[in-house]
């Protein structure tokens, strides 16, 4: 991998906790690397694990699903379902040889702007260490 390699991280954030936490990071003018691109969903429960597969196919080097801490879900249970589904998909991806550092989940509450920064920094560092994702990336992207 070249020194200039900048990883591309696709993140799915729930509206009520992690997206708000990322907003708070902004409001607090916390600085973090720009490699993370956020897609807003209302709840991590909405995140179909196949989104992760799709993101890897479409050029993501690392993915993140982030939601409310257990028990704090705005919809009560969404993050519990998300956690179970994510667990299965993470195991599956690792089993076929995807580096575990590319498949991430975090709990970031609306008040954890600082934690969001920490998560992003860790992911970017890990992604730089693991290098560009090539394993089953689409060659020609057609959208």
């Amino acid at each position: 991998m070249s020194k200039d390699y900048e990883p591309n991280i696709v993140a799915f954030l729930c509206n009520w906790c992690s997206y708000a936490g990322a907003d708070l990071a902004g409001t607090s003018r916390v600085q973090y690397p720009p490699n993370i691109n956020i897609i807003r969903v209302m709840c991590t429960g909405r995140v179909n694990p196949l989104f992760l597969v799709n993101a890897f196919q479409q050029g993501a080097d690392s993915v993140l699903v982030s939601g409310c801490h257990p028990g704090d879900c705005h919809y009560m249970e969404g993050n519990f379902y998300a956690r179970r589904r994510f667990t299965l998909m993470k195991e599956l991806l690792e089993f076929i040889g995807v580096d575990p550092r590319r498949v991430n989940m975090s709990w970031v509450s609306a008040s954890e702007g600082g934690k969001f920064k920490d998560v992003v920094e860790k992911l970017v560092k890990d992604a730089k260490d693991t290098g560009p994702f090539e394993q089953f990336r689409r060659n020609k992207i057609n959208w």
Binding site: P70, G71, E77, F80, R83, T87, P100, M105
Partner: peptide, 13 residues
């Protein structure tokens, strides 16, 4: 279509 509140989550950041 189910979960347990204490499902393992050692890998979650």
């Amino acid at each position: 279509a189910s979960y347990r509140p204490d499902d393992e989550e050692d890998f979650i950041l």
